[in-house]
Every structure is written in structure tokens, then in C-alpha cells.
Simulated assay, not measured.
Amino acid sequence: MILGVGTDLANIERIKGTLARFGDRFRNRVFTEVEQRKAEARADVAGTYAKRWAAKEACSKALGTGLRMGIAWRDMSVRNMASGQPQMELTGWAADRLAQMTPPGHHAIVHVSLTDDHPWAQAFVVIEAVPLPSGGPGGVGASGKAAS
């Protein structure tokens, strides 16, 4: 069952301007160290940050809160699998909110898709609740990934 859906469209040039104006203050407030390392290693630094910004906005919408109610930017992080596929990792208040949304007997999976076509970056997040196997362990981990 679908628990939440969120999408966001970010302007890469706006993020580029914010990075130029506020630098590390902006980076450190919004992005985790892993996200910063990923972005700074890419040819399109601003585009990489813009996609992650959009993912955080989309995730907060899928959680049903937007960026209020105690959620912090760094409570939502984009990591990439070895294949390059992005994954949302939730910690802190975002992970707590995900656990509250997840019905008993289910575990939550947070799906994320990112794309960009200059000057736009877009993210789409779907939070899905999947029934636990009968008698098996499970629940929602702090990462927002299914526990096994």
C-alpha cells in the first residue's frame, strides 16, 4: 500500500546561486557529508545538489509534513547503490515520522527517482508499506529501508 507520494522541481541555477552566496553554510545545513562528497566529485556540482534538494523536498511531502514539524534537511539523505540507483536514507525525526506512518505488521520502503534537464532537477518519492512475512522480524529501520 502507498503511504505517501511527493515530488519537487528545483531550479539548478537557483541552487548554483545559493551555493555561490552561502557556500559551506548552505552545504552543511542542508546536505550530509556523503551528499557533499558525491556532489563535489561530479562535473555538474550544482545539478547534483539540486537533485538532492528536490529529493529532500519530495520526501518531506511524502512523509506528509513538508519541511516543518521538526524535520531537518539532514534527516533525509540521498545515497547511491553500487549500480548508481539513488536511495533515500532517513534518520532522526524523518525516521520517527516514517515509523509512525507505517501500519503494524508492515515495513516501509522509500522509493526515489531523480532526473535533471538543465535548468531543472526533479525528484519523485513514493513511500510504500509492505506486509511483513508472517512470524518474521521486521519493522522500519532508522534508514527508512526495510528491515529483514
Rank of each mutant, 00 (worst) to 15 (best):
N28D: 15
V130N: 03
T102M: 12
K38P: 06
W73C: 04
V125Q: 00
P86S: 12
T48H: 08
G105Q: 07
D8H: 02
V30H: 04
A94M: 12
F22Y: 13
V112Y: 01
P119C: 04
R79F: 03
S60C: 15
G144C: 04
Q85W: 12
G70V: 05
G138Q: 03
I15A: 08
T7I: 09
H106R: 07
R25D: 04
R21H: 13
E57W: 03
S134C: 07
I109H: 14
H111E: 01
W93G: 08
R27E: 12
H111N: 13
D44K: 12
A94T: 07
A43R: 11
Q85E: 14
S143W: 02
G84F: 01
A121N: 00
G136F: 06
M1V: 11
I2M: 15
R42T: 03
W93P: 05
Y49H: 09
Q122N: 06
M88R: 03
V126N: 00
T91R: 14
G136M: 04
M88K: 07
E13K: 04
W120H: 02
A129I: 03
A95N: 10
H111C: 11
N28K: 15
S143P: 00
T7Q: 03
S83W: 10
G17Y: 05
V110N: 05
F22C: 15
R74H: 15
D24Y: 11
G138P: 02
M81C: 10
A108K: 06
D24Q: 15
L90I: 09
P104C: 07
V126E: 00
T91M: 04
T32F: 02
P131G: 01
G23M: 06
G23H: 08
E89T: 14
M81R: 12
P86Y: 09
I127N: 02
T7M: 10
A108E: 00
G84R: 11
F31L: 06
A123R: 03
C59P: 13
A147L: 14
G47F: 00
S113E: 06
M101P: 13
L132Q: 05
A142H: 06
D75M: 09
